[in-house]
Computed example of a mutant assay.
Amino acid sequence: MSTIETSLLTTQVYDVLRSKIIGRKYLPGEKLDIQKIADELGVSRSPVKDAINQLVHDGLIEIIPRKGTYVTQLNFTDFIEILDSRLMIETWAAQRVTPSMTDDQVDKWGEIVHEMDSLLEVTPFPFELYSKLDMRFHKMLVEWAGNKKVLEIYSSLNIHVSLSRIVHSTSLESTIKRHQDHRTLFVAMQNRDLPTILGTLTLHITNLKDEAKLRWDEVML
Rank of each mutant, 00 (worst) to 15 (best):
M1F: 12
M1K: 11
M1Y: 10
S2F: 09
L8F: 01
L9N: 03
V13E: 01
V16F: 00
R18M: 10
K20W: 04
K20Y: 03
G23S: 10
G23Y: 06
K25Y: 14
L32I: 11
I34L: 02
I37K: 03
A38C: 03
E40N: 15
G42Q: 04
V43H: 00
K49P: 00
D50A: 10
D50G: 00
I52H: 02
N53H: 10
Q54D: 13
H57T: 13
H57A: 13
D58V: 04
G59T: 07
E62C: 05
I63L: 08
R66P: 11
G68L: 01
G68K: 01
Y70L: 02
V71G: 08
T72S: 12
Q73Y: 12
L74P: 08
F76D: 04
T77I: 15
D78H: 15
S85E: 10
M88V: 13
W92P: 07
W92C: 08
A93H: 05
A93N: 06
V97L: 01
M101F: 09
M101P: 01
D104Y: 06
V106Q: 06
D107V: 15
K108M: 11
W109I: 15
E111W: 03
E111I: 07
M116D: 08
S118C: 09
S118M: 14
L119A: 08
T123N: 15
F125A: 04
F127C: 00
F127V: 11
E128C: 00
D134V: 04
D134R: 09
M135F: 13
H138I: 05
H138W: 03
V142K: 02
V142P: 02
W144N: 02
G146I: 01
N147D: 14
N147Q: 07
K148E: 10
K149N: 03
V150N: 06
I153N: 13
I153T: 15
Y154D: 07
L157A: 08
I159H: 12
S164Q: 04
T170E: 09
T170D: 06
S171W: 01
H179M: 02
H179P: 00
H179Q: 01
H179R: 02
T184D: 09
L185N: 05
L185P: 06
F186N: 10
F186L: 13
A188T: 04
M189L: 12
N191Q: 12
N191D: 11
P195I: 05
L201Q: 09
L201A: 10
K209L: 05
D210A: 13
D210K: 14
A212W: 04
K213Q: 15
K213G: 08
L214Q: 04
R215N: 11
D217A: 13
E218K: 15
V219G: 12
V219A: 15
L221Q: 14
